[in-house]
Simulated scan of single mutants.
Amino acid sequence: MIDHARDLESLREATDRLLGAAAALDNAAVAEPSRLPGWSRGHVLAHIARNADALLNVLEGRPMYADAATRDADIERGAPRSLAVQLADVRNTADRFRHSADRPADWSRVVTLRNGVTDTAARVPFRRWVEIELHHVDLGIGRDLEDLSEEFTGREIEFLAERFSGNPEVPSLTLTAPDGRTWRTGRRDGAALAVTGPAPDLLGWLAGRRDGAALDHSGGPLPALPPL
């Protein structure tokens, strides 16, 4: 069961942790490449801020983004800013999102995200938490997938497995972590390819952050997953 209030508190803690770590950078470091191909750390920070605005739009019943071109242009425009401006933007947009989420609301209502994707409002705080945690890792400033909590990692694997479930481009897969947790995803027909490995590596592969080299898939090759 989704507990949006608990997720909002976890989101607050993750945001504070990211801001604290990023505050140790300087303007030159913000301009350096992140772990995301083609993006500087400034791109990542600008995206984090604009995503808060976008998910605020979702909570308040507006389109998440005006369109894809506007989304991309906003990130490009924000990427070269100084560290102080970047951090203030991330902090202020996080505060606006939290202020909206703290208002009484029907958290069971259905909301619309990008590309017509729908979800319940109660899952929006977790979606935002994912953005903060994964992009903190993407900044390349000392946090990695292994540092994420077991709860978060398992929930995000489940979330991504659900996202790829039934996708005709993804063969049937069974994902298993060393502690026995198992997730099923991909097409619903045919024998499932068993993929096993540490939960951070499973998450990294599903989220496009790792190539799957640390995973065991002796029954066949790892498929190329569609972009998120």
Rank of each mutant, 00 (worst) to 15 (best):
V130A: 02
L134P: 00
H135Q: 04
R210G: 06
R188E: 12
H99K: 11
R127T: 04
D138R: 10
A101R: 09
W205I: 05
Q86Y: 06
A192S: 15
G180F: 04
H99I: 11
R209L: 06
A207S: 14
L134N: 00
G197Y: 08
E150I: 06
D147F: 05
G166P: 02
E162H: 11
R188P: 00
S172G: 13
R96H: 12
R210A: 13
E169D: 13
A105I: 01
Q86S: 11
G197N: 01
V90R: 09
T196P: 00
R184E: 13
P178R: 08
A88L: 10
G140C: 09
R114W: 07
A105N: 08
G208R: 10
A199K: 10
T176I: 12
E158L: 03
L206R: 08
D179T: 01
R184T: 15
T120V: 08
A161N: 03
D106I: 05
A121I: 03
E146A: 15
W205A: 04
A94S: 15
R155T: 03
D144E: 15
D144G: 15
R109A: 15
E146I: 08
F159R: 14
D147N: 14
L206T: 02
S108A: 13
R184N: 09
H136I: 06
F126L: 04
S165H: 13
L175D: 08
T93R: 14
E146C: 12
R91V: 02
A177N: 07
D189T: 13
G197K: 02
V111D: 01
V110W: 01
S108V: 02
D201L: 03
W183S: 07
T93Q: 14
R109W: 05
D138M: 04
D138N: 10
R91I: 02
E131I: 01
P125G: 08
R155S: 06
P198N: 14
L203A: 07
R181Q: 11
R128I: 05
E131G: 07
A194N: 06
E150Q: 08
D144H: 14
W107H: 04
A177F: 10
F97D: 11
L145T: 11
D106H: 04
R123C: 01
D95A: 15
D189H: 04
L87V: 09
L145Q: 11
T153W: 06
F152P: 00
R114H: 09
P168Y: 06
F97Q: 11
A88T: 08
G140H: 13
P178S: 05
H135M: 02
R128A: 07
A191F: 00
F152I: 02
